[in-house]
Amino acid sequence: MVSITEKATTLLALHRPGDPVILPTVWDAWSANLAAQAGFAALTVGSHPVADSIGRPDNEGMTFGELLTRVTQITAAVDLPVSVDIESGYGQTPQALIDGLVEVGAVGLNIEDTVHGEGGRLREAQEHADFVGALRRAADAVGVHVVINARTDIFLRQIGDESDRSARAVARLALCAEAGADSLYPVGFHSDEVYRELVEALPLPVNAIADPAAGNRAHLASLGVGRVSFGPLLQANLAARATELLATWR
């Protein structure tokens, strides 16, 4: 078994701009084993697919404890670095979040700036960076370099005027980088031009979302991103194929 500190170091080293780590988004032991057997070096646990798999709505419709139960099953099934989407934190303190993740063997997290438990408000830029900083200090306190992927939903929610949206996203994420993030996630499907702008402007590896049925690793690598995840799209593609198979038996 690889130690948790080694897994954290490995996950961080895999973030290479222009040679991105592909983190298949999994939701249970079965999907994690599927990705591990396909040869991927690390995984991310998606909140949306996990919530779907246990009959809860996305956007913190499940509890942090329910998420950790599933992560425990995943880390027991595969000996790979595992990152976890913790949405906006489930109302937990940064220390409780880090303690919970490390206890179940996770070595990375994705933290977003939409606070679902408070009506879906967007954290102020410095507020979000301060939360990231508190997560970093909490991880340092337990001696594990938990890889923090700081996310902003400005593009996803189309907040504010489009003309300066990229600049506002960069400003937000730059604060997160200063606070101790390891990678930055301007979530959304962007044009090549926007991706290049973001990669050039941001000081850390950029996370891109991709559709596994339509995306292309080489193309995203050429844009300079350092990390790729699938959000709920791997599960959605498998669900669509399963629907086709089941339809022939009705």
Rank of each mutant, 00 (worst) to 15 (best):
I4H: 04
T5G: 10
E6M: 13
E6C: 10
A8F: 01
T9L: 14
A13R: 15
L14T: 02
H15E: 09
P17C: 05
G18L: 11
V21F: 04
P24A: 08
T25S: 15
V26M: 00
D28H: 02
A32P: 02
A35T: 02
A36T: 06
G39I: 04
F40R: 09
A41K: 14
A41F: 00
A42H: 05
T44W: 03
T44A: 13
G46T: 03
P49V: 00
V50E: 00
A51Y: 01
I54G: 03
R56N: 05
P57D: 03
P57I: 03
D58Q: 04
E60Q: 14
M62K: 01
M62L: 15
M62W: 00
G65H: 11
E66I: 02
E66R: 10
L67G: 00
T69H: 13
T69M: 05
T69R: 13
L80Y: 05
L80E: 02
P81L: 09
S83W: 13
S88A: 14
S88M: 04
S88E: 01
S88G: 01
Y90T: 09
G91N: 02
Q92V: 04
A96K: 12
I98F: 05
G100Q: 11
E103M: 10
V104Y: 03
L109V: 07
I111C: 00
E112Q: 08
E112N: 00
V115L: 15
G117W: 10
G117F: 10
G117V: 08
E118Y: 03
G120E: 00
L122P: 03
L122A: 12
L122V: 15
H128L: 06
A129Y: 09
A129Q: 09
A129M: 11
A129H: 07
G133P: 06
R136K: 14
R137Y: 04
A138V: 07
V142I: 14
V146A: 10
V147S: 08
I148Y: 00
N149M: 13
A150R: 07
A150Q: 05
L156E: 04
L156K: 11
L156T: 05
R157A: 07
D161S: 14
S163E: 11
D164C: 12
S166P: 08
R168I: 06
R172M: 09
A174E: 13
D182Q: 07
D182W: 07
V187D: 01
F189A: 14
H190F: 06
E193N: 06
V194H: 04
V194P: 07
R196A: 11
V199C: 15
A201D: 03
L202Y: 02
V206M: 02
A208C: 14
D211T: 06
D211K: 13
A213H: 04
A213E: 12
A218N: 07
A218C: 02
H219C: 02
L220I: 11
A221W: 04
A221T: 04
L223K: 10
G224C: 05
V228L: 07
F230T: 03
Q235F: 12
A240K: 15
R241E: 14
R241A: 15
A242V: 13
T243Y: 14
T243V: 07
L246I: 14
T248V: 11
